[in-house]
Design a binder for these strands. Structure first.
Lengths: 140, 140
DNA sequence: GTTGCTGCAAAACATTTGCATGCAC
DNA sequence: GTGCATGCAAATGTTTTGCAGCAAC
């Protein structure tokens, strides 16, 4: 995903371009890591003094619905990042400090010995948590 | 984990036996599935008319700290269940409707091809979500 | 009697919604 | 001008905390 594709998607679906939306998309493009709503507010509050959580939440929600952002939940907080790619299923190793990620291309669901009898499976979550070298160095 | 072992653990650590704690432990023993704080309140409110979330949350938190309960977070809610066993690392397949679980004995972290360079790994989560046969039948 | 346990009330925190105004198209 | 977008304020839902009284030991 990138800003151009995201804007296309917005237009396709009949949503409008606004400065705030563009800046939010640019932020996710620049950062390329998981961000919480408060991170987005923090990043944009200087430019938009009146910017409120309402708008951020509404747009985060819209972007996820459109497949522009992917989400996860960490420590009770919803976090968002640019969708990595729409065509390849993958998982993430996530830095608990800064949200930086690393792809994991293996999916445990591919294992032939995975048994799910008695359940109708609708999804799964596989994430590895840790600290990236940078955050690890700063913290300790 | 079972009620007896949980009570031992409580006594070991100098915590007291109270009716509410015993009933909470018995509930987790009987149910053997993930429950949210509100589920616990729902189950015990008839017996204890004045029972409040404070007590439930405090005890849930205490039980987790002592390793009596294991936790997960689903749709922004913390959920708790009796620890399955302390000696065998495993994951769960979870019913999104009722919290019922099925063990998954495979752990993707065991894979030798898992690459985590650039990160200090501190944990991981692997869960499969779905609907158990019972809930599936009732819903559709 | 000491110490932990509980209820009450209030607060904290992330998130959502109603409504009136404002802006993109 | 129409309809989506935004800000404000208020509400929601879950979880936490201070404090005073109560119960387990």
């Amino acid at each position: 995903m990138n800003v151009e594709k995201a804007l296309e998607k917005l237009k396709e679906e009949g949503f409008k371009y606004t400065d705030k939306r563009m800046d939010m998309l640019q932020l996710f493009s620049d950062e390329s890591r998981y961000l919480a709503a408060k991170d987005v507010l923090e990043a944009l509050k200087d430019k938009y003094s009146g910017l409120s959580f309402d708008t951020i939440y509404r747009n985060l929600s819209l972007f996820s619905d459109l497949g522009i952002l992917e989400t996860t939940e960490l420590a009770g907080e919803k976090k968002f990042r640019f969708s990595c790619s729409t065509d390849h299923h993958h998982h993430h190793l996530i830095c608990l400090e800064c949200g930086k990620t690393k792809h994991i291309h293996q999916c445990p669901m591919d294992s032939s010995s995975m048994t799910t009898e008695g359940f109708k499976v609708v999804g799964h979550k596989f994430e590895i948590y840790g600290y990236c070298d940078k955050c690890e160095a700063q913290t300790f």
